[in-house]
Design a protein around this nucleic acid. Structure first.
Lengths: 122, 122
DNA sequence: ATAAACTATAAAGTATACTTTAAGGTCAAG
DNA sequence: CTTGACCTTAAAGTATACTTTATAGTTTAT
């Protein structure tokens, strides 16, 4: 499929998709070039970009995503490294959940204060 | 207290603290100037910077923090705006927790795959 | 066949949140 | 009374993740 189709399917823009490719987040499994030099994307690209969006939202940088990505082809050492990275990230995500809950408690108190303030004034 | 003391207490650096001030995140309640033009921080500044760190970690931008900050002095309209912002943020944080959990499930599967791969090879 | 809509590249620009640099003033210790 | 550790400012630099711009080739529709 062409870039704008992939863009529609993933909710990204063509420049963003090209940027990701430039940064090494898309491989031969995701894009090839046609005769006209246009990019031709596989179905795997759709899933892959959705994966990127999802983990990026929870705090992975593009470089971390790239590091974790190197899957099938990796040597034992590379796999071990990405397991290590994944484990660290899981722990990081646990603390992030905790931080979120603590911050929510904090904001909830602020919200109550502000509502009280508004009642006072209004 | 002087800037490096505040820095130690909060785990920030003096340039970062000055930067926050420049961006309007510190007020008269947090800093005043001494005769020598040195900044003199109140205890409230410690708490405030800790607050900033905490909510920033969960996705607030500095400008959002600034918007929520305007507390005591706010007009009814300003209070209403910051209540609205806080409510949006609470909802956003709920989805973020969900995203975290979904991403963890995803990573957990990836981790299992990689471990299996390692076992195969090793 | 020509205009609109798409594709390509490289390079510059943007936003956020800092950090670093440069150049200088102030203060405490020996 | 000077040395070293602090303080000040303004401005430039950095990292991340894009977006925008400029320039040009290709495809699709009428």
């Amino acid at each position: 499929m062409k870039i704008h189709v992939l863009a529609q399917k993933t909710g990204l823009t063509p420049p963003t998709i090209r940027y990701y490719e430039k940064e090494g987040l898309l491989t031969i499994r995701h894009v090839v070039r046609g005769e006209n030099n246009y990019r031709d994307y596989t179905e795997e690209a759709v899933e892959h970009l959705q994966f990127i969006k999802r983990v990026q939202k929870v705090g992975f940088t593009l470089m971390e995503i790239k590091a974790v990505m190197e899957e099938k082809k990796g040597s034992k050492l590379e796999i071990s490294r990405s397991i290590e990275l994944l484990r660290e990230k899981m722990i990081e995500m646990d603390s992030r959940k905790l931080e979120l809950e603590q911050a929510q408690a904090l904001l909830s108190r602020m919200l109550a204060n502000k509502r009280a303030l508004l009642k006072e004034k209004g």
